[in-house]
Design a protein around this nucleic acid. Structure first.
Lengths: 227, 227
DNA sequence: AAGATTATGGCAGCAACTGACACTTGGCAA
DNA sequence: TTGCCAAGTGTCAGTTGCTGCCATAATCTT
């Protein structure tokens, strides 16, 4: 990712630059006016290419945004595959998530957050993103099944675990976007992943509410999850 | 639902009939040729209305299919609100699901299954459905929060619980559709909902695999969920 | 430098929608 | 019953996402 200048030819460099320009233009315009209020022709004009070229780089308007989202999902799967096999599947996913985000550069982090914000703007885009998350989750399930040595077609638990994990992440993303603060995403994720197992099992409608529920302005981490 | 003939006027009856004809035509055509291969004009022609009229009844092509899906989600929320307050939130949702499906007529059950099958056919439709599921899950979270007496903006557990529950349902739906048999949906749901809590917590990568994992052709219910 | 490969642009066209307008139909009261 | 008003419908034009086709221009190879 650092110096592939001499490896690739001019053609590939140009393509990468065009693609990058399209993504940058799209994200900026979407953030300014919202996903639905920006046409593909405007994005293409902003990146100094024709609309036809835009659709040669991205299969759809949503794809431009989702391509950014794909980066971190792919990184997450790579990190998961690299986690030691002794770890519990859930722990491995929690740590893989932290690994993937920790190696992002600040600009990439900002792009990811912007994608989350933009996704909440349009129901069309949100649906497309959900579908991506779904197929990502399916690939996660295969990784988990292989790691645990079970047949994913007989045992539903890999799918169930990854589905619960992924949806907890979505909850954290949603809450983080809804909150006024901007850089609380990691904390929201930590909190949600820590609460997920107990939310299912414990009798939380009676007494043992989590500590911060009664003290909403606690700013410390609820439970450290990183490795 | 049985005899509202004398309550409503001719105008409303006509509207209901048109709407029903559109849904029936769409489902049939989609099942025959796939969601993407059917145009809205064809659906309109099949229901003897103009394309413009179709879009006065449904906001989008996906909406025609999703309107069927909405019925059961709405029924589910009604049943959940009717469950006794003493039940654990998770148990209440499991029972509400069974309640909602048990009161469906056979034709409605068939329609729901067809919707699931059609949804897997098109990525666009699948994304739209996921988005519906998402907003449904948000409303579920509000119901659960009220039932448990917690503030959903401070306590993420209602969202987490409903997200995990909903995604477990999706897993069950997907597995049921992928399976060769046709009427195993309820069993798949029972199995997934029963396995969900343990999939998160227990060390299932070592020993305690569920009973039917080694005996895939067990046909009994894994765990009764009804009330 | 010439030829092969590949990226790009322009254009026509399809399908999902939408707004505007005219027309028909059902509901309701004089 | 008659007549008026509201509501449903069809037609048409137009926008937008997206694709196939072909000509052109840029890059790579030899």
């Amino acid at each position: 990712m650092t110096h592939d200048r001499e490896q690739t030819g001019l053609r590939e460099r140009k393509k990468a630059r065009t693609r990058q320009a399209l993504v940058a233009a799209a994200l900026r315009l979407f953030a300014e006016r919202g996903f639905d209020a920006v046409t593909t022709e405007e994005i293409a004009a902003e990146a100094d290419v024709s609309q036809r070229t835009l659709f040669r780089y991205f299969a759809s308007k949503e794809e431009i945004v989702l391509s950014v989202h794909d980066q971190i999902e792919e990184g997450f799967r790579l990190k998961l595959a690299a986690r030691p096999a002794e770890e519990h599947p859930f722990t491995a996913m929690v740590n893989a998530f932290a690994d993937a985000w920790s190696e992002l550069e600040p600009a990439d982090v900002a792009a990811q957050l912007q994608v989350l914000r933009i996704s909440n703007d349009s129901s069309r885009l949100h649906g497309a993103r959900q579908e991506r998350v779904c197929s990502h989750q399916n690939r996660l399930a295969l990784l988990i099944a292989r790691r645990a040595g079970v047949d994913p077609r007989l045992d539903p638990r890999p799918e169930l675990l990854t589905a619960a994990f992924t949806s907890a992440l979505q909850v954290a993303f949603g809450r983080s976007c809804r909150a006024a603060g901007q850089d609380n995403l990691l904390e929201a994720v930590d909190e949600c992943l820590a609460l997920l197992p107990t939310a299912l099992t414990a009798d939380w409608d009676t007494a043992n509410t989590p500590a911060h529920t009664s003290t909403p302005d606690a700013d410390g981490q609820i439970l450290p999850v990183g490795g």
